[in-house]
Design a protein around this nucleic acid. Sequence first.
RNA 1: GACCCCAUCGUCUAGAGGCCUAGGACGUCACCCUUUCACGGUGAAGACACGGGUUCGACUCCCGUUGGGGUCGCCA
Length: 467
Amino acid sequence: MKVVTRFAPSPTGYLHIGGARTALFNWLFARHHGGTFLLRIEDTDRERSTQDAVDKIFEGLKWLGIDWDGEPVFQFARMKRHAEVAHKMLAEGKAYYCYCTPEELEEMRAKAKAEGKPMRYDGRWRDRDPKDAPAGVKPVVRFKAPREGVTVIKDHVQGDVTFQNEQLDDLIILRSDGTPTYNLSVVVDDHDMGVTHVIRGDDHLTNAARQTQLYLAAGFEVPEFAHIPLIHGPDGAKLSKRHGALGTEAYADMGYLPAAMRNYLLRLGWSHGDDEIISTEQAIEWFGLDHVGRSPARFDFAKLNSLNGHYIRNTPDDELLQAALPFITKHAGRAPSEAEQAKLKAILPAVKERAKDLNELAEAVLFLFAARPIQPDAAAQKHLDDAAKARLRKVSEALQPLNEWTAASTEAVVRNLAETEQVKLGQLAQPLRAALTGRTVSPPIFDVLAVLGRDETLARLADAAGA
RNA sequence: GACCCCAUCGUCUAGAGGCCUAGGACGUCACCCUUUCACGGUGAAGACACGGGUUCGACUCCCGUUGGGGUCGCCA
């Protein structure tokens, strides 16, 4: 059997991190089995669905490197087909018109609440003659759900989950305006699209029971289910915005690499022994539903950062520079020139060891763009007292006659000076760092000298020490 | 509240009855490397929620308790 999976977000906001993981799992599962991964936009809620959200979903998936097969299906466009299935069920006596008013339903809801029971439609129109219909009331169509027995979901993650049918009421499949509701649409679409494996958040577990009944009633084959646990915030509660329930574009803006994000999301709720760093190719080869965890995982920025640092360090310089350029432009306030890009590339190997995200990387490289005279920050200023300035003048003098200007040659000069002056290397290096970068933290100082070049180095030294 | 799901270090997890003196990773701490910060290396602290069973033997199986989560819309 060819595997067909799908990701079916509703376009009511950005593609958040939980959705991204659901998409990733579906994608991985399909790719692993050489199957098909489809995208369906569930835009039947006309009030809340927006084109902007649709675009954000596309962009988010693309950013993550998740590609889908064929054209996306827009659920709203398939409304007629959904209604057709509902009418067929009506004709077959598997569904019926219900003339309950919203007030009556509200009453039922209140009563249920008072009794501490879940809201359950009492089925008052289930077997009633439509001739009793009150005039002027537009009916909804309800599914005639089985009242006895059980519905069992054979879930690949949760195992067999049994629901008593009496717990499930007659759900509305067609609204009073004739439009289909979610559960019906999902069932018809998944069937029509040939979806074999429904992998989604476990907030849909109860829906799976209702949907199973619908599949059976419609004469459709029930797909395989896999309900994966939701991602929680660091406090164990539902993921909130300040806890990471952000859109993928927010993570892009924070300077996370898609590869790191993929790896992080993959390991959140799935494992392959002790493996932590898993390439996408490897993930496709290894991924399966059998190792998806059953308990909700908490989102942890610390681990994401660590992973991101790893991927930054291991990204080839050219590629990393391209990814970092927008961030550098943002932080520097202007786009780097050709010449500056060459310098950027030269310092990148040293800088990428020390950045956990692209913003940090851009920050670390900012000294290249700083206009003279450099404005040292408070910490750096402490390394530029009179004694330090005097030492810097000596460094400057020693550096002047140097022919070949490289990290190695400048280092040799400064080390030599430290020896003759009887000072620790750090006593020269820290003031140098402060004078050249305006910071106390920077890439290795002789790498800084090398990229800055002789003229700029000497000029900055003169600014700081009056040399 | 009802129904359903879940439960191993702070966090992500390995663990399919003896391999467990419970392993790895992130984080934390210490030391080493070192011109700063990182990286890297070495090491330390740190968990089977609790109570009953089943078994010669339970982290692993069963039941209960507790705790957490999800769902209860003419939303998706």
